[in-house]
Amino acid sequence: MEKQATRDAYGKALVELGKKHQDVVVLDADLSKSTKTADFAKQFPERFINAGIAEQNMVGMAAGLASAGKVVFASTFAIFATGRAFEAVRNSVAYSKMNVKLCATHAGLTVGEDGGSHQSVEDIALMRSVPNMTVVVPADGVSTARAVSALYDMNGPAYLRLGRPAVPVIYDQDSPFEIGRANRLRRGEDAAIIACGVMVSKALEAAELLAREGIEAAVVDMHTIKPLDEAAVIELARETGNILTVEEHSIIGGLGSAVCETVCAHHPVPVVRLGVNDVFGQSGEPNELLEHYGLTVEKIVHNVRDLLRKK
């Protein structure tokens, strides 16, 4: 199976965007080789600004550039983009609806060996809680590229959550991708699995295994966490009567919480949230960590079976 890191796809997509549009400006905070904005920097040095190791200033400058008509893509690791710079994102970017796309890489546990200090498992929660913010968590390289151009076309602040390791490519070039519109990847009446990011391909694998047991699980790629495709969630709740959410993020405040909020308000059904259980990460190999924190195909299968038993 073909694999690509979403950060690699981001770097390539930025270069394409830069060729097409003169108003694209890219900012980074001394991590351009890791975030892959280095490719853009090389091609368009006059439209690349290295903020140095100063994330708050990077975000503040992004707001200023955006106010002068630039479409700003600002990148660093997710922990620093959403954590260190949070209040600048809120007050300088979101509050004034500045056209800034905060594109953060190295999100979640799959940062790996750098350890818990660098593994953001609360960034979706932070960004989702801010008014005016669009939050996108692509599952693979193809949808990352689509997201980058969709974010350019959309006026206003957005957060794009990208990862470090290579992940399976699940989309074709001509698959539909629309911000705010969930992608239903598999039909099924017994249960619904709603996933985002690196967990989408695992959800697909799990559904495959479940099908062998005669359990038909729907799989949805909820790439846009905000605005959430509420209609899709409610439809799934009606069709299957139970939902499993899966994310490489804390179970507090992320995809699972968003789904619960919608289901609670419109069509209450049992929801189980699979994610990081209100703990910090630690050093380890990316896959080892996903295993350790229970973010595996087996755990998805197990949780769907459990849900059905309680039905």
Binding site: I53, I79, F80, G83, R84, E113, D114, G115, G116, S117, H118, Q282, S283, G284, E285, E288, L289, H292
Partner: peptide
């Protein structure tokens, strides 16, 4: 840097005696 080690990729004072402050965020 191995799973479960007190020697985290960046110093973690809750995991290793002698480390005074958990750092890594510059």
């Amino acid at each position: 840097r191995k799973l479960g080690s007190p020697l985290q990729g960046h110093p973690d004072r809750s995991k290793l005696a002698g480390v005074e402050a958990s750092t890594g965020s510059l």
